[in-house]
Design a protein around this nucleic acid. Structure first.
Lengths: 357, 357
DNA sequence: CGGTTGATTGAAAACGCTTTCTATGGTAAT
DNA sequence: ATTACCATAGAAAGCGTTTTCAATCAACCG
């Protein structure tokens, strides 16, 4: 890979060997070797204008021979584009986010854009910095998953670049939001229990508090409530406990639920993680699932299929959402129309719910 | 935030308003506003040379007033540095990786470097592209978690920039590798079972095949074998099954193990995911844990504490490894000495192992 | 008091690419 | 054969920083 064109030799002589020459082949080197100007080289790579086939080929050959890789910094500086889209999540480690990322990677796969990942770890300050990192890198588009930023900031961002917001609805901004219909999913989960003959159905919710920007917990809860109402059942406050989506809180919640002494035969838990905690709590008390209590979760985490017993749950189409988001960003980038559907979740029937009649 | 210095007004008049002026404040604008040259502004931000306090302050004020953010592309181009370190994992979604990422984020937190994440999804081709993305962005350092690249390539990379490799040992390159002592961990897991009175201990390994660059499975297995040997027990091939680290393979493995008909009272599984599969297999057969079979896993995934029963397992100090890796990179970047210890894993005792005497 | 020295500062040259703007040649039209 | 027009290329001007080089100024030395 030792090039001996003028430029390279000049580099060698000036002692730049170990830096420029060895380290980075530039458009200069290619131009020299192919016997054309750098403008032409640039044109070839961007096919931004007609270049005679012979030169084109020469450039391609030179580039291949020298293993040329454009300097993104230079490109970005000159063109004002970074050819990357920023992806901000809250927790790389969760199955739902992981699925989304997978979808995004796939969706961006044969575009010229590369994803740039950052993670907020559910902490506003970290999220802010992560976002800043992305912005500093001048991403051309942004996919935000469950962002906790203010609606104003989000709208402001949208002014400057294509954006897609997953798992959160920002008022007056629905066009850019991609969500799952949590209400419907909650409704259906509850309905499923009702249909199996259960009438006393408890619910452990996610984080509900007012200030919360993310409405998933509230929507699932509303679905639960309405499903009950629709069959003439009054939701019983004693059968409802607020959790915080974490495993531990499921354990706690089932304790308080049980301690209230109100009987129930089925339990709808707002996510699988908490369901996992619930399951342990039940096990500790010697309460069997599904014989004594039917259990239904939400999310279909990978290990839910391996719970004892395998958990009936609601699956969000994470991967599909990721690729839809990617596609939408790409379209926005191309000034093409796009639309983000409200996704619907799927009931995954396994073994944690038994019918009683 | 409307600036009326010469530069900005000029921008306004030339109609650059909606792009340059609104979009990006440059060092130019600051210089103008603070009444100094751009060189001085640059010096202030990098405190690369003495600048009189009065000017320094003026620059800072101007920067604050205009909400200046340096253009990383320009900085990168000019300085040859990107002030970022690339982090390549195999699967954002796994708890182990997630812990590492958390550690890295924390470790880089008060440095000037920002992490840039990419994920190989356990597929060599994707990993290659992800790495390329990182390289193209001219990261100043690289943290690779369980990379599958050839040793040659890794060494080559190390020539060019600081590097830390987690979870893989590259021969003759140990200085840059940060690993957990899997052999010791495997040994201790087995020893624990032995100490509880178990003599017929089965083992489900991870991916073992020769070509495999990652040795974790083989090391855990070797630890298992030697622990047995050390108490005078001959490892029984009929009690050993090779899995592939995935949940499903745990289920399969326990089936074949059981079908061989050789009795065993305890089972060491090379990771928690497979243990999860095993658990389900056992449940299906009505075999109780820990009463009929003692179970011990590896990794301490978050949900392992909530398995039925809670799983005794080995915890790798993921988060700590992440921050150690970050620190090592930072030190290399500063030309300071660094060293990567071999981490040792911790036995987490829960309820899936019962003593038999 | 002229010349040094050191601390500050500005001018200008990179950095590697994109993108006008111009120039060149050839081809089609008159 | 002229003129007009295209297609193709090169020159050169940025893009927003850093960094080298040179210049200015004041305090300091003998």
């Amino acid at each position: 890979m030792q090039c001996l064109c003028e430029t390279c030799v000049a580099d060698l002589n000036t002692g730049k060997t170990m830096t420029t020459q060895q380290k980075h082949v530039t458009i200069q080197h290619i131009a020299e070797r192919a016997g054309v100007s750098i403008s032409t080289v640039s044109r070839v790579f961007n096919d931004s204008a007609g270049v005679k086939e012979s030169k084109r080929q020469a450039v391609m050959d030179a580039a291949a021979a020298l293993d040329y890789r454009p300097n993104l910094f230079a490109q970005g500086l000159a063109s004002g584009q970074s050819m990357s889209v920023g992806v901000l999540t809250q927790n790389f480690g969760s199955a739902f986010y992981d699925g989304i990322l997978r979808g995004i990677i796939a969706g961006l796969d044969n575009s010229n854009y590369a994803p740039l990942f950052a993670d907020g770890r559910w902490r506003l300050d970290i999220e802010e910095r992560a976002l800043q990192t992305l912005l500093d890198r001048r991403v051309d588009g942004l996919i935000l998953v469950g962002p906790q930023q203010s609606a104003d900031l989000l709208k402001q961002l949208a002014q400057k670049m294509p954006i897609v917001i997953i798992s959160r609805i920002v008022e007056g901004f629905e066009k850019f939001c991609l969500t799952v219909d949590n209400y419907d999913a909650g409704y259906r989960a509850t309905k499923y229990l009702l249909d199996r003959g259960h009438h006393q159905i408890a619910h452990i919710t996610g984080v509900l508090s007012e200030s919360r920007v993310l409405r998933d917990a509230a929507d699932r809860f509303a679905g639960y409530r309405d499903a009950l109402l629709d069959v003439g059942l009054e939701p019983d406050p004693d059968l409802i406990v607020e959790g915080n989506f974490r495993t531990q809180s499921g354990l706690l919640a089932i304790e308080t639920l049980l301690s209230r002494g109100r009987p129930f035969s089925a339990l709808f838990v707002a996510n699988d993680q908490m369901a996992s905690g619930v399951r342990l709590g039940l096990y500790r008390r010697g309460i069997r699932v599904p014989d004594d209590i039917a259990l239904i979760g939400f999310d279909d985490q990978p290990h839910s299929a391996y719970m004892i017993p395998p958990l009936t749950t609601i699956r969000q189409p994470a991967e599909e959402m990721g690729s839809i988001a990617a596609e939408a960003i790409l379209n926005q980038l191309d000034d093409k129309p796009f639309s983000l559907p409200t996704m619907s979740a799927e009931l995954i029937i396994r073994e944690s719910v038994k019918s009683i009649y």
